[in-house]
Every structure is written in structure tokens, then in C-alpha cells.
Amino acid sequence: MNWHGLKAIYLHEMDRMRRTLFQSLVSPFISTSLYFVVFGSAIGSRITEIEGISYGSFIVPGMIMLTVLTQSISNASFGIFFPKFTNTVYELLAAPLSTFEIILGFVGAAATKSLIIGTVIILTAGIFVDLHIEHPFIMMFFLVLTCVTFSLFGFLIGIWADNFEKLQVIPILVITPLVFLGGSFYSINMLPEFWQKISLLNPVLYLVSGFRWSFYEIADVSILTSLITILFFLSACVLTIIYAFSKGYKIKN
């Protein structure tokens, strides 16, 4: 294992966050506050409770997921896309690093950043609502797993993208709609039966549902189904990245 190499990539990526520390931390704080103002106060005044939980508290897990998912994808995709764009990727490819070490360095840093941002959102949410976490360890486990999985997915997007437009296309056109339609701000039980069934095709639903269960023990699908779904997605991302690297896809050809 090239520990020094791994550390170099990790710290190099984390340094990007240090350089933009203010935006990195203030931006999730402001957006969380805005969500509480718009969804919690304006809409929450009309929807008082969902399954016995105040609307303000109900949306916290979904809100965290929304930000963590988009941040994980954006950090990891940019992390590997930028060296490709500036052609400094040659150094990573020429260094005695395995695919695993490269992925671990980039994805580890992106996931760490998302985890920090997720923590900022939880702390911010605590200012607006009375936050009670029923299963803190499971909540942390889900949070870490989500950060890692979607950082892997972002890394894959970064490998695939050969311009800035492609870098944005999946997060904007696929991920954001999936998060909004995945029960982040509502329970799918509030939807007509047909749309409930359609919602079950949305992988993000399982993620939000499992995460919400760790907070309030209420879920749209079982916790086990949520866990299996996210582990399946994580494995798919890992295998695709390993395949892409071994074939040199968009990097070595």
C-alpha cells in the first residue's frame, strides 16, 4: 500500500476545501436556513404533522440527504475531472498508485467534505427544530455510507465527463429530481397509489427512508431494503470504476 501517495491525494483534495472554507461551510448553513423558512415555516404551517412528527422535523433527514448527495457528487466529480481538464492527471497515472488507492484518496476526501457539510446541516437544523435522533449510530452509518456511495458515483461522473457541461448534466437532470421526488419533503403515503408505486422505482427513496428511520423510526420502506439498495448501488459504483480504470476508459487512451 502506498500510504504516502494516498495521504498526498487526500490532503491535496481536502486542501481545496480549506481554500474555500467560508463558502463550503456557510453555504450549507444558509441553504438549510432557507429550506426551514420556506418548507418548515410557510408549508409547515399548513402541514402540521406527518406520522406524528412535526413537518419541520420530518424534512430534516431529506434535507440532509439532498445536500449530502449533491455535495458528494460535485466534490468527487470535480476532484478527478479537474486534473483531467488541466492535464495534470498524468502525474496520478505515472505514480506507483493502485486504482484502489487513487479512488480511496479522491472518494475519501469527497466523502469527508460531505460528512462535514452533513454535520453542519444537522447542527443548523437543531437551531430551528427540536431534533431528536432515535438511532444515532445507524444515522451516522447511513450518512457515511451515503457520502461514500455518492462520492463514488461522482467520481465515475468525473471520469466520464470530458467537459463542464457533462459534469453538471447528471446532478442537475437526474439526481436533483430524484431527491425531490424521493420523499425528501413528504411521505410517499401522501401520494395516490399509482405514484406511490412509481416512487418505489426511485433509488433515492430507499436512502431517505432509511435515514429518516434512524431519526424517528418511521419509514416508507423497510430499513433492510434501504440498506440493501444502498449497498447494491455502492458495489455497482466500485465495480464500474475498477473496470473503467483497468480499461483506461477516458483516461489512458
Partner: peptide
């Protein structure tokens, strides 16, 4: 300074 040290790290050198 940072960038040259980064390169050294990538190659597994302390």
C-alpha cells in the same frame, strides 16, 4: 512548495 511536495508524496516517498 506544496505542489512539489505533493508529487513526492504520490511516489510513496516520506
Amino acid at each position: 512548495w506544496d505542489n512539489v511536495n505533493y508529487s513526492r508524496g504520490l511516489y510513496g516517498k516520506p
